[in-house]
Simulated assay, not measured.
Amino acid sequence: MKPSLPSLFVLGVVALTETRAGSHSMRYFFTFISVGYVDDQQFVRFDSSSESQRLELRAAWMDKVDEDYWERQTQISRRTAQIYGVNLETLLGYYNQSRGGLHTLQRMLGCEVHPDGSFRKGFDQHAYDGHDYIALDRETLTWTAADTGAENTKRKWEAERSFAEGQKAYLEETCVQWLKKYLQMGKDVLLRTDPPSARVSRHSGPDGEVSLRCRAQGFYPAEISLTWLRDGEEQLQDTEFIETRPGGDGTFQKWAAVAMAPGQEDRYSCRVQHEALAQPLSLRWEPEASSLWVIAGVTAGVLVMVTAVVAGAVILRRRNSGREAWRGPIRQQEAGPGGKLLQPQSRDEWGEFRQGKGCVCA
């Protein structure tokens, strides 16, 4: 039985194609601390070590949901955090590790849709201590284990086929429905496009080396391409990139640098591509105008990619310090005491699980 939704969510199909072109996605990351994102915008957060232990609002457009939504999602988040603690203990046994160390258990669950709102793909991936652990193969309803420790989980989960079936149903149905609802609720923020402003600057090193840096900022959504060209040819060697980063005002920033011999600067150009641009920008270093920003003022009628993410890291003993970054798909919670597989035992529990906030319950 699917959980009842707040009356606010009786919305029908969103006409996504009228706004921007591009796929959309919703992702949840689970552990003791959870942070949710819709289209690169944080919208919810839960911290099991906080005094209130309640799901917290992080986006103004979420104030439209009623109290039942917050209460239900808070209870699900609390139960999820408790189960993650039990499952983390199990993984310590699988890898012969002591309780005195610091370890992380993570999970990413979500879906992507086409511009017309139809299902594109889904994923349920898990990691332990920042490395791939196990992931769902949605087509075969099997689990792909990354190492011998994860083989224990694979055997247990595949022995309970209903677990994979429930995940598949969530990814292809419920996840898509919630993605459309969140997108509709926050459309003024989530479906906008902000073009980047960009510039090229020159930097000299202590040994006389020279580099040009192409920096873009103020853009939304986060996906952007910065490419260095030498005499019109893409330059991959001697090029350095930083990951796209939040700008602190709801937009993003990124830069790419290329090294060269002095006197070669005029052979290089930076190409900036973003969905808010009618056409790519082509920028060169201009000594007399190196401090000026090029503002891209033409937006394209393309649809924003929507990402909803709930992110976090489970930490044994000290939850709020020394978290290790996740470098791959997140691992799912595991078995309980004595190696017993934890999973939903009722239709109601499956409903909660399929909302994206549940987990393998005892």
Rank of each mutant, 00 (worst) to 15 (best):
L5R: 12
A15T: 00
L16G: 12
A21R: 11
H24T: 06
Y28T: 10
F29S: 12
Y37Q: 09
V38K: 01
S49T: 15
S52F: 08
E56R: 12
L57K: 15
D63C: 02
D68I: 04
W70D: 01
T74D: 02
N87A: 15
L91Y: 12
L92T: 01
Y95P: 04
G101P: 06
L102Q: 15
L105M: 10
L109C: 08
G110S: 05
V113A: 15
F123I: 04
Q125G: 10
Y128P: 00
I134A: 13
L141Q: 07
L141I: 02
T148H: 09
N152M: 03
E160H: 14
A164P: 02
Y170Q: 14
C175P: 00
K181Y: 00
Y182I: 07
L190Q: 03
A198F: 04
S201K: 12
S201H: 05
E209V: 06
A222L: 06
A222F: 07
E223R: 14
W228Q: 02
L229P: 00
G232D: 01
L236G: 07
I242N: 13
G248E: 04
A256E: 08
A257Q: 12
G263T: 05
Q264T: 09
Q273K: 14
R284E: 08
W285Q: 01
P287Y: 03
W293Q: 02
I295M: 09
A300D: 12
G301Y: 02
M305P: 07
V310N: 09
R317K: 14
I330D: 11
Q332Y: 09
K340R: 11
L341C: 05
Q345L: 08
D348T: 14
E349Q: 15
R354L: 00
G356T: 02
C359N: 12
V360I: 03
C361R: 14
